[in-house]
Amino acid sequence: MLDDRARMEAAKKEKVEQILAEFQLQEEDLKKVMRRMQKEMDRGLRLETHEEASVKMLPTYVRSTPEGSEVGDFLSLDLGGTNFRVMLVKVGEGEEGQWSVKTKHQMYSIPEDAMTGTAEMLFDYISECISDFLDKHQMKHKKLPLGFTFSFPVRHEDIDKGILLNWTKGFKASGAEGNNVVGLLRDAIKRRGDFEMDVVAMVNDTVATMISCYYEDHQCEVGMIVGTGCNACYMEEMQNVELVEGDEGRMCVNTEWGAFGDSGELDEFLLEYDRLVDESSANPGQQLYEKLIGGKYMGELVRLVLLRLVDENLLFHGEASEQLRTRGAFETRFVSQVESDTGDRKQIYNILSTLGLRPSTTDCDIVRRACESVSTRAAHMCSAGLAGVINRMRESRSEDVMRITVGVDGSVYKLHPSFKERFHASVRRLTPSCEITFIESEEGSGRGAALVSAVACKKACMLGQ
């Protein structure tokens, strides 16, 4: 009897593995994704193909990295998701002549009506938060230079001027797309009239992360975010950046690689679950690469896999709870928690219980395998993109072996128990001629924006502006 049951459990697990095998990517698959990513990057950089390229390769006008001589107080704003952060950054000489960066910050959550109302409502709310922060720190009387981390696709015309191309991540505030974001912020500050600010720089969160990590390690020339969304930036040779005049030196390019796949480059790798996630998203047909990796989508992918296993009578005796059938019910943090389970399955059992399920031991094991399959594919897909960037940098610099540091931020990278190990191992397999160091950014977005502002202020002083 026991043997029969054991055989049935083994057969069930084997069927589960057959279904989950769809998520496995072979090294040849990853090399294919990497080569296609490089081709799209090239198209994004070139003037004649930029418009139709899915990977936009947006110039950021960040050319210099901090040298350690900029000092002063800077205000930093960070808008990239449902939370908005205001930070005071003091850049100065530390002990023994070292450079020191001290920060104080406060988080504000953005109400739904500000995210989806008008641009005026959104930026009025942001300036209200700045006003509140300055009151708390008794700094209303000071006109501070301000660095703005704005983590949406922007076409820069200068370091302090950028046109919002399109909202992502659930934002829909009308009247912002096609307009200068810094102008919208300046107008809102003017409307309030109770404080003055000098907006000197606007950067993407990947750029802010790279600059913040450069402060720790001067070989950091790539910034990457794996959180709600997924994106990367890197220092490109100016001669390859056709959208900006000049051939000397390097400029940081914001790849906006989340949109890779929007022209069909990933079609052969998309599964039924991916198509369902895409169809029910706020932007169907867009940001397809990001939807395979980002935390906004990972939990939902797992939920759809679990429903398939229920329908195949391989999980929960073929019956799903009402909660499990509800879109968004299986949160991405559950994926991390399930994979963090120590082996007694308590954590998995508790999560499934909150979803109205009474799982068996085998159910718990199957749910864990589903989570591992989805998150491992995410790590491997992400590795193909980064390997594409790094191999490109090595080739354009004609280096036999390139040493490089990548600064990384984002909740999936930082909080998932195995993502970074799987990701690092896969990147290294795909970049055999590179020695890569990964560092995690601390308060990256805010500190990085302030350091970019410090560079901009120093330049302005040198130019006598």
Rank of each mutant, 00 (worst) to 15 (best):
Tyr413Asn: 03
Phe269Val: 08
His156Val: 04
Thr49Val: 08
Ala6His: 06
Val406Lys: 00
Ala370Ser: 12
Val374Leu: 08
Val338Tyr: 06
Arg308Phe: 12
Gly328Asn: 15
Asn313Glu: 08
Arg191Cys: 01
Asn391Arg: 10
Asp158Val: 00
Glu435Ala: 09
Lys296Cys: 10
Asp205Arg: 05
Ser336Ile: 01
Gly80Cys: 07
Gly343Met: 07
Val207Ser: 04
Glu442Leu: 12
Trp167Ile: 01
Asp29Ala: 11
Ile293Ala: 04
Ile189Met: 01
Leu304Phe: 08
Ser398Lys: 15
Thr255His: 02
Met238Ala: 14
Glu51Leu: 09
Asp363Cys: 09
Leu243Gln: 13
Met238Gly: 08
Glu256Gly: 05
Cys364Trp: 05
Val241Cys: 02
His424Tyr: 07
Ser433Leu: 12
Val181Trp: 01
Gly94Lys: 14
Leu2Thr: 09
Ser100Asp: 14
Ser373Pro: 04
Lys90Ile: 08
Gly318Arg: 13
Lys142Tyr: 09
Glu421Pro: 10
Ser109Ile: 06
Ala259His: 10
Glu216Asp: 14
Arg403Met: 12
Ala370Asp: 06
Gly407Cys: 08
Leu304Gly: 08
Glu40Gln: 06
Thr354Pro: 14
Cys252Ala: 14
Phe419Lys: 05
Ile436Gly: 02
Gln98Asp: 06
Glu339Gly: 05
Met139Phe: 05
Ser360Pro: 14
Leu307Gln: 14
Ala10Pro: 09
Gln347Val: 13
Gly294Tyr: 01
Lys190Cys: 06
Ala10Thr: 11
Asn231Trp: 00
Thr431Pro: 11
Arg394Cys: 07
Thr362Ser: 09
Val302Tyr: 04
Leu304Lys: 03
Leu77Gly: 03
Ser353Gly: 13
Val181Glu: 02
Leu165Glu: 03
Gly175Ala: 00
Gly147Arg: 01
Gly264Thr: 15
Ala176Leu: 01
Lys104Glu: 07
Gln239Thr: 15
Leu164Ile: 03
Leu288Phe: 09
Val89Asn: 05
Gln24Arg: 09
Arg428Ile: 10
Asn350Ile: 12
Gly170Lys: 01
Glu272Tyr: 08
Tyr234Gln: 02
Val62Thr: 03
Leu2His: 06
Gln337Trp: 12
Leu288Trp: 11
Trp167Ser: 01
Met8Arg: 10
Glu265Ser: 11
Glu96Gly: 09
Val277Cys: 06
Thr149Phe: 04
Trp257Gly: 00
Ala379Leu: 03
Thr255Gly: 03
Glu443Ile: 06
Glu279Ala: 14
Thr116His: 09
Ser353Glu: 10
Val302Ser: 10
Thr209Val: 13
Thr60Asn: 02
Gly407Met: 05
Gly356Lys: 10
Leu266Thr: 05
Met381His: 07
Arg333Ala: 15
Gly343Leu: 12
Leu2Val: 14
Glu290His: 02
Glu440Ile: 14
Cys461Ala: 11
Glu319Tyr: 14
Arg5Thr: 10
Gly446Thr: 15
Ile126Asp: 00
Gly92Ser: 11
Cys434Ile: 08
Met107Leu: 06
Glu9Gln: 12
Ile126Ala: 04
Tyr108Glu: 02
Gln287Trp: 04
Met235Gln: 15
Glu196Tyr: 10
Leu355Gln: 13
Gly80Ala: 03
Leu357Ala: 07
Met298Gln: 13
Asn231Val: 02
Glu265Trp: 04
Leu58Gly: 01
Gln239His: 14
Glu440Thr: 09
Lys13Met: 15
Ile348Asn: 04
Thr332Arg: 03
Asn391Asp: 07
Glu48Thr: 13
Pro111Gln: 08
Lys13Ile: 12
Asp409Gln: 04
Gln106Thr: 07
Val55Arg: 05
Gly464Asp: 10
Asp311Ser: 14
Tyr289Glu: 07
Glu52Gln: 07
Leu288Ser: 14
Glu399Val: 08
Ile293His: 07
Val253Asn: 10
Glu22Leu: 07
Glu256Ser: 03
Glu322Pro: 10
Val277Leu: 10
Asn313Ile: 07
Ala208Cys: 05
Glu372Arg: 12
Val226Trp: 04
Glu157Gly: 03
Glu399Trp: 05
Ser174Leu: 02
Lys102Ser: 10
Arg36Phe: 06
Glu395Ser: 09
Met381Leu: 12
Thr362Asp: 13
Arg358Tyr: 06
Glu236Met: 11
Thr49Glu: 04
Tyr234Val: 14
Ser64Met: 15
